[in-house]
Nucleic acid binder design. Structure first.
Lengths: 229, 229
DNA sequence: TCAAAAGTGTTAACCATACACCCATGC
DNA sequence: GCATGGGTGTATGGTTAACACTTTTGA
């Protein structure tokens, strides 16, 4: 049961900053810690890396265990390794950021951590460890990357209106965009397919629903096309 | 002396992809391994992270020990953690990329690794472990980042000519640039200070020497200025 | 005087920005 | 019929890209 090494080793963990968008706010998934240190405080989902799994596999496993979340778009963010970041012992953590389609998703509490919840990025509680730094790094990465990679679509339902898309960009980038210019730019890229469907149950003119054409994007990308908002 | 833990832990290492530019080629610093596995093969400098040092401190220490290199610009690149990347045991490695002013630098062999050498990126030997993947990731990061951050200057001497700068960009980006447009763009940013000195010992008209004004850049950056080539 | 690289402007095409009104729908 | 958001075009200024010759210097 015990594992012995000639030299001491840091613990290795993964943490995930999962963003969701509900047509209103950009939100982050947090869990409430049960144990010391920081018992009761909110923290990023994460945990120890097992010996037989990759880092990304570890993040996905922890997300399922702690928040019951699957089908997350994940990218590695940064590795946090300052010697003092955990008061107990040396812990190096590989952080990932994730994007998830929040619309209509039940945020069910999983068995492992009964208390997982979505918080608006603008109204976060104090976080355990250096998780505020990690979250800030993830938020900055999202703001930068959403402009030159088509990752925003990971936050929207499969079918979405141009206004939803614009509002997503406005929320993530924290600035307003001109409606006509935004539509011109997006449609000129020719990456959206018109589903020929329209919104249902809205108290105003129903908007067209589009979906992102990933295959087309990948083909264009190879030819040197650059997505940019 | 032995260190015992309840659960097994991966080894944690750092690796560095250090680039240099000699007015001709983009080069990478490699060391020749003495031990198995991959004895005799070339590899990235790197090694185990100690318990009391940060990840960046570990990279700097290893660079001094293995290649006698100091004063390197370093940024974290990516963490490589696939379970099979080291044939002996589970090793997770935090990779950094580095930039160094190569001009006139003696690439002295240090005591620890007698065999450190600079290789043109275009003519690399086979590398140990997954170091080719790491190097490729670093090269791509450099190509992307050099365009929107003023990191190219880290590869040039303090004082340089506009042609040197242009040639650096052409080498890193692997494409030619228009001389007049390049100069217009660079000078319009107003980030270069004319040293009022000129090249020495050249068999043609001597060019003006400029230096990068980092303070000015940092001031402009705060006001929302974006460097871009 | 030749070779080698330094240095320098103009034009045309394209792209980004600013801006305001009518339309369709449900209540 | 009114409130709500959907949908549309044009004009202007700025930015990028293409392009060729003269100057300086040392050998």
């Amino acid at each position: 049961m015990p594992h012995t090494y000639e030299y001491p080793r840091p613990s290795l963990t993964v943490d995930a900053v999962v963003f969701g968008f509900d047509d209103q706010d950009l939100k982050v998934l947090l869990i409430q810690r049960g144990q010391k240190p920081f018992a009761g405080a909110w923290a990023l989902p994460g945990g120890f890396v097992h010996m037989d799994e990759s880092l990304e596999e570890a993040v996905r496993r922890e997300l399922v265990e702690e928040t019951a979340l699957t089908d997350v778009f994940l990218e590695q963010l940064y590795t946090f390794g300052s010697p003092q970041r955990d008061p107990r012992e040396r812990v190096v953590s590989v952080a990932y950021y994730g994007l998830v389609k929040l619309a209509g998703r039940h945020v069910e509490a999983a068995t492992d951590a009964a208390r997982a919840a979505w918080f608006p990025v603008a109204e976060l509680p104090p976080l355990a460890f250096d998780h505020e730094d990690i979250l800030q790094a993830a938020h900055r990465r999202l703001q930068a990357k959403v402009r030159y990679q088509p990752i925003g679509f990971e936050l929207l339902p499969q079918k979405f209106t141009l206004s939803q898309l614009q509002h997503l960009y406005e929320t993530v980038l924290e600035r307003t965009l001109d409606k006509r210019n935004f539509r011109k730019k997006i449609l000129a890229m020719d990456l959206l397919t018109d589903t020929r469907e329209i919104e249902q149950d809205v108290a105003h003119r129903a908007a067209r629903l589009f979906c992102f054409n990933r295959k087309k994007y990948q083909a264009l990308e190879k030819k040197g096309f650059n997505f940019e908002i």
